[in-house]
Amino acid sequence: MLDKIRWTVIVPLLAVVMLAAVWGRELSLLADIPIFALLLAAVLAAVHHAEVVAHRVGEPFGALVLAIAVTVIEVGLILTLMVSAGDKAAPLARDTVFAAVMITCNGIFGMALLVGALRRRVAVFNAEGTGAALATVATLATLSLVLPTFTTSEPGPHFSPAQLAFAAVASLVLYGCFIAMQTVRHKEDFLPVEPGTDDEDEHAERPSARRAWTSGGLLIAALVGVVGLAKAVSPAIESGVDAAGLPRSAVGVVIALLVLLPEALAALRAARGGRVQVSLNLALGSAMASIGLTIPAIAVASIWLDTPLLLGLGATEMVLLAITVVVGMLTVVPGRATLLQGTVHLSLFAAFGFLAVAP
């Protein structure tokens, strides 16, 4: 435990120091490699400190703290790449948000169901809360990523300024309403329904207020380091994608995978401990935050920075989103899932990953 505390304290501070050392400088490939490694470590440290704060405030507020921390990292990475890449980064927010939805609603969601079913033959969760979360994700994704393809005020899959403002406000209202329901009015719908869980985090001693405040400060330092170091290595990420012959949308997939890796690990731990509901809260909460918070933030930034913003999905992506929503609803309705449902979601995730590199 002491070693874990040490590296999670050192990494955020080291990330800030490294950021001050490399800010405004052109870096060689040899320098990019350790900086990228430090960037990944800072992401892990940020989520660790978010988990400490989350454990202090308890469920279901804990999943909310984690989702917001991940969203801050995601928005920071998108904005740094948008500023550095200019017009070429117009679809970056769309690609990243869509990748986050596929990773959470199929990858993490399917993994949680698979692990839960392997552990107890059937993964049990609260259909009311999970269904409400999935319906909110589907509505947010449709408003922000599907409608721009069909609107006619602007040529191409773009929103007009008024439409973008409406989508941003609607996303915030939906997200805020869901959070009020999750944390106040119907929070029992988002608590684990199966007794006898054995996850070590569930039974760990609640962190003291002092430790929670310390983790809060280190969380801020880690987030600053992540966003700043991402700007430093962004040219290397783009060059690597181009050198591999991958489509530009792969940059968004890389960002989403980087940001959601710690969230996936947290969800896996919860599922292995029998807390499938917590895993699903993390998955769908991250998807919801990726749209409900990221799109409004990016919309404001695009207006402020006067950069183009392309949000509309293509036909292939819309098919994947539609089948994800339909299969997700059929999975959630019974309130229980077997290995089959987990495998179906993971198959959809595999299809997304394959088509991302071979469209």
Rank of each mutant, 00 (worst) to 15 (best):
I298S: 01
E238V: 11
G216I: 06
A267P: 02
P262M: 11
W304Q: 07
G285S: 03
I298R: 02
G225Q: 06
W304C: 09
V251E: 00
W213F: 14
M288L: 05
G225P: 07
V227P: 01
V254R: 11
D306V: 14
L261I: 15
A267I: 03
V226E: 00
S286H: 04
A287V: 10
G274K: 08
A271C: 09
L282G: 03
G217Q: 03
I303R: 10
D306M: 13
V227F: 02
L284W: 06
L268A: 10
G273S: 07
K231P: 03
S249N: 10
E238I: 12
A287P: 14
A315C: 08
P235E: 12
G245L: 06
A221C: 09
D306Q: 11
Q277T: 09
I220Y: 02
T214P: 01
A236H: 12
T214W: 15
A264I: 07
V276C: 01
T307H: 11
V278G: 06
V233H: 06
S215Q: 04
G217N: 08
A243K: 11
S279K: 07
T294F: 00
A236G: 08
L246H: 02
T316V: 15
E263D: 08
R275N: 11
L260N: 14
V251R: 03
E317W: 01
A270C: 07
A266F: 10
V253N: 13
S239I: 07
V233T: 13
A250K: 09
G274N: 08
R211D: 07
Q277C: 05
A315G: 06
Q277L: 00
L261D: 15
W304R: 10
A250Q: 10
V253K: 13
S215H: 05
M288C: 00
A264H: 05
A221I: 10
A244W: 09
G292H: 00
R269T: 06
V241G: 12
V227A: 10
